[in-house]
Amino acid sequence: MFRKTALWLLWAGFISYVLLLAPPITPDTLRLIKNILTGQWTEVNPIILSIFALVGIWILIYSCLLFVDGRMQRIRFWPFALGSVGTGVISLIPYLALREPNQEFSGQKDTFLKVFDSRWTGILLNFSGLFLLAIGLLAGDWGEFIQQFQSDRFVNGMSLAVCLFCLLFPTVLGDDMARRGFNIPQVFWAVSLVPLLGSLAYLCIRPPLPEASPGSAPEPVASTTRA
């Protein structure tokens, strides 16, 4: 109950901050969004481009854990995944609050789940994430970014959203490790305490998700969720 309450409070607090306390939306904000969406990237600070793309990387990282998790929940993850494409962490947090802790998986992985369970998907996300970090760190204008963070609602909210993605990852990491028989506390803490890079590395080192043989019947959802 404490976990759920904390997540709902975090969700409400983040929305309230963005709407009431974050810097205002200005004509520069709209121009920035237009430049990003229309591919005029030479007009955008590489740091902001990297953060914008890292939101997508984080959605894919969570998808590698939560589409499997959603199979065993009363609610499925896919509506929240679709919502997060447009709203980022604002659509993710409600799923984290509504889901029940679950450390089991029954049945077989379909092609969709196999893609998100594949180590090659993790490797691809690793290369993409490291490339985006390098672009932001090496080519970005940090002075301009700080100024935009302080004055632009889009940059401010998006940057904080990436921080929330990092902060919330441990809430689903433990269940995913348990489903794979990968209960190593040192790995959990190393992944949890190293933002983004730890999560990317985990997707490459985690064992494949075990699945039932074709002839076995899947367990009912109600028996696999825990309060």
Rank of each mutant, 00 (worst) to 15 (best):
Ile75Lys: 10
Gln103Val: 13
Lys114Thr: 07
Leu96Gln: 09
Phe67Trp: 12
Ala81Cys: 13
Gly39Ser: 05
Ser84Ala: 15
Val44Gln: 02
Gly56Met: 04
Arg74Phe: 15
Ile59Thr: 08
Leu113Lys: 09
Cys64Leu: 08
Ile51Asp: 01
Cys64Asn: 12
Trp41Glu: 03
Thr87Cys: 07
Pro79Ala: 09
Cys64Thr: 15
Trp41Arg: 01
Ile47Glu: 00
Phe80Arg: 03
Gln108Glu: 12
Asn45Asp: 02
Thr87Tyr: 09
Ser106Leu: 02
Ser91Ala: 15
Val68Phe: 00
Ile51Thr: 04
Tyr95Thr: 07
Pro46Gly: 01
Leu82Gly: 10
Arg71His: 08
Trp58Met: 10
Ile61Leu: 13
Phe52Thr: 14
Val55Met: 08
Ser84His: 08
Arg76Thr: 13
Ile51Trp: 02
Ser50Val: 05
Tyr62Pro: 06
Asn102Glu: 09
Val115Asp: 07
Lys109Asp: 07
Trp78Glu: 12
Gln108Ile: 01
Asn45Val: 01
Leu82Pro: 10
Val68Asp: 10
Phe80Tyr: 15
Ile93Lys: 07
Leu98Ala: 15
Lys114Glu: 12
Tyr62Val: 03
Arg31His: 11
Phe80Met: 06
Trp41Thr: 04
Asp110Gln: 05
Leu54Ile: 14
Ala97Cys: 11
Leu113Trp: 06
Ser63Asp: 14
Leu66Pro: 03
Ile75Gln: 09
Phe77Glu: 06
Thr42Phe: 12
Phe112Ala: 11
Val115Ala: 13
Ile51Val: 15
Ile33Asp: 00
Glu104Met: 11
Trp78His: 11
Val85His: 11
Pro46His: 02
Asn45Trp: 00
Ser84Phe: 07
Tyr95His: 09
Pro46Ala: 02
Asn45His: 00
Ile51Tyr: 03
Phe67Cys: 05
Lys34Leu: 09
Ile51Arg: 01
Leu113Asp: 13
Met72Val: 06
Arg74Val: 10
Arg31Cys: 02
Phe105Gln: 02
Ile75Thr: 11
Leu82Ile: 15
Thr87Phe: 12
Glu100Lys: 14
Glu43Cys: 00
Ser50Ala: 15
Ile59Cys: 04
Met72Tyr: 05
Leu113Thr: 11
Ile48Gln: 00
Ser63Ala: 15
Gly70Val: 07
Asn35Thr: 00
Ser91Phe: 15
Gln73Ile: 04
Gly107Glu: 02
Phe77Lys: 05
Glu104Asn: 13
Ile51Pro: 04
Ala97Met: 11
Arg74His: 14
Gly88Trp: 06
Val85Pro: 05
Ala97Arg: 10
Leu98Asp: 08
Asn102Thr: 13
Lys114Asp: 07
Gly107Ala: 02
Leu49His: 01
